[in-house]
Amino acid sequence: MLEARLEQANLFKKVVDAIKDLVQDCNFDCNDSGIALQAMDNSHVALVSMMLRSESFAPFRCDRNIALGINLTSLTKVLKCAQSDDILTLKAEDAPDVVELVFESAESDRISEYSIKLMDIDQEHLGIPETDYGATISMPAAEFQRICRDLIALSESVSIECSKEGVKFACQGDIGSGAVTLRQHTNVDKPEMNVEINMSEPVSLTFSLKYLVNFCKASGLSNQVRLCLSNEVPLLVEYSLANNSHLRFYLAPKIGD
């Protein structure tokens, strides 16, 4: 059986909120290392990969592998019933028909119990190859969100160029063009404002802004976001969570002229 108690229901709420517009029906794969999710959007352009490690829960118990097939719209409806500082416990039997969600108030004696009917989801599991990226950029998540939201007003696509000059986000549209360049930057007082660029080769790639704006819904989960780029391979956008957990998005590039 699965029993996973999360001190902050809000964390799970935010994760589901960040991915629900990208993917609809997902398997939450539970085993003794934690709860993982991997799903592609309908167009097979973007992939979501979430890992909530067992250390993120207290206690965490999962005796055998359980796949919880959940519709995220249904899950969102139920998670709305949790107050943001509630404690969340996920429960399921070994061959479950339902997943149970229990919300407990840390301050009062309220206990709310909900269940969601599970679905059989036949999902392909993709092998994501280990990649030595040509460029890795860590930057404030809010800054990345702002750049994506600003540039989508002008164009559908953004080119991300990383060179020893820094990283340049540029777009061209019908009304004109826009570009934002960031250089490596260390803020001693506010390390969450740091911009760190590690580059082994210059990289230049083009991506659809619609997807990037979507990924940025995860901005509330982490102060910093990490972008990993190599020419001609999918972009990795990573939000690190506490206890080595993470929410990652992959996006296929646009290529050719």
Binding site: M40, S43, H44, V45, A46, L47, E124, H125, L126, G127, I128, P129, S157, T206, S208, V233, P234, Y250, A252, P253, K254, I255, G256, D257
Partner: peptide, 14 residues
């Protein structure tokens, strides 16, 4: 214009 690639060619089915 550039064409949107799919992830299928990058990630293999396990």
């Amino acid at each position: 214009p550039k064409h949107q690639q799919s992830l299928d060619s990058y990630f293999c089915t396990r």
